[in-house]
């Protein structure tokens, strides 16, 4: 059973018809934690705004929970929860007032769905009389999640919920999402952080409004076509320049303190040749070894296509 279906959805902005979303098709299954992974400006927010009926698509069709996003926008608004990337609750109302307000807007009450938000709410409850504008970033995210959940939505859209949040709060946030998944809520989340991708059931890699690949994080990693090495030496910048002109280099880019490298020839012989070559060029302390690719490697590899 599909919770969200997109069929060749497109969106262009402005007079110059700048393409933000380029005929995107994807399906999200019920009860799935689905991630839209892509850099800033990839079109993630536009997709979210169309699915939450805030923006009309220019082409294609999409359904959320079986409802058409154009025709049945009223039903969708009753059934989905949306947490925009920017904190957009009433800053001059307290935590409690915000939650109560959004509960009444959806014709429900906090008590009715308390079990759903309980885990999150207890963390911010000590500050329930504090105004939302005076909360820390992490607490704001928790409050926004509570407000998005208060009417027991069937699908939850979270637009970059962890951007600008400290690492500990980010980890906590993803744990909360996992617990919500157990409550049978479909969650669609977008993030620019590749390391969060592995926490999703399935992910879509997106760039310039186009979907590059959709699969589970494991399968995406497995589908990485080449053998990947990590390499390090004393002069990293010169090393990168040297490797980029080396005839057998397939791709080479910086990755943390190492360079990630693939070669056209994957034999051990080629490896030794390379090290020899680098030593001849005057590099010292060369470290080289095989490494399993991550989502980020896949993303960069896909971008090169």
């Amino acid at each position: 059973m599909e919770a969200v279906v997109l069929n060749n959805v497109s969106k262009t902005y402005g007079k110059e018809r700048k393409v933000a979303v380029d005929s995107v098709s994807l399906t999200v299954n019920k009860g799935e934690l689905f991630g839209l992974i892509g850099p800033d400006g990839a079109g993630k927010t536009s997709i979210f705004r169309m699915l939450t009926t805030l923006l009309l698509p220019d082409g294609g069709t999409a359904t959320v929970d079986g409802f058409d996003i154009v025709k049945d926008y009223k039903q969708i608004r009753n059934n989905v929860g949306y947490m925009p990337g920017k904190f957009s609750l009433y800053q001059d109302l307290t935590i409690e007032e915000n939650i109560n307000f959004f509960a009444t807007v959806f014709g429900t009450s906090v008590e009715e769905n308390y079990d759903l938000i309980k885990d999150i709410y207890v963390q911010i409850e000590p500050f329930k009389n504090r105004r939302a504008g005076k909360l820390s970033g992490g607490m704001k995210q928790k409050l926004a999640l509570c407000c998005a959940l208060i009417h027991k939505p069937t699908v939850l859209f979270l637009d970059e919920p962890t951007t600008g949040v400290d690492p500990v709060s980010r980890k906590e946030f993803w744990e909360m999402l996992k617990r919500l998944k157990q409550q049978d809520i479909t969650i669609v989340v977008s993030t620019p952080y590749m390391d969060e991708a592995t926490l999703c059931d399935r992910i879509a890699l997106i760039q310039n409004g186009r979907i590059l690949q959709i699969d589970t994080p494991d399968k995406i990693v497995q589908s990485y076509p080449d053998k990947l090495y990590q390499i390090k030496a004393d002069r990293m910048y010169d090393l990168l320049k040297e490797l980029n002109v080396y005839p057998k280099t397939l791709s080479c880019f910086t990755f943390g303190e190492y360079l990630h490298l693939s070669l056209t020839d994957e034999s051990e012989q080629a490896e030794k040749e390379l090290i020899q070559h680098l030593q001849n060029k005057g590099f010292h302390n060369i470290e080289m070894g095989a490494v399993t690719p991550g989502i980020e490697d896949c993303f960069i590899q896909l971008l090169k296509k």
Binding site: T52, T53, L54, K74, R77, N78, V80, Y82, P84, K86, F87, S88, L89, Y90, Q91, F102, V105, F106, G107, C147
Partner: peptide, 13 residues
């Protein structure tokens, strides 16, 4: 400006 209208727009109001 604050973005609250966005949050209101996705509700059945």
């Amino acid at each position: 400006e604050v973005g609250t209208i966005e949050q209101i727009n996705v509700t059945p109001i």
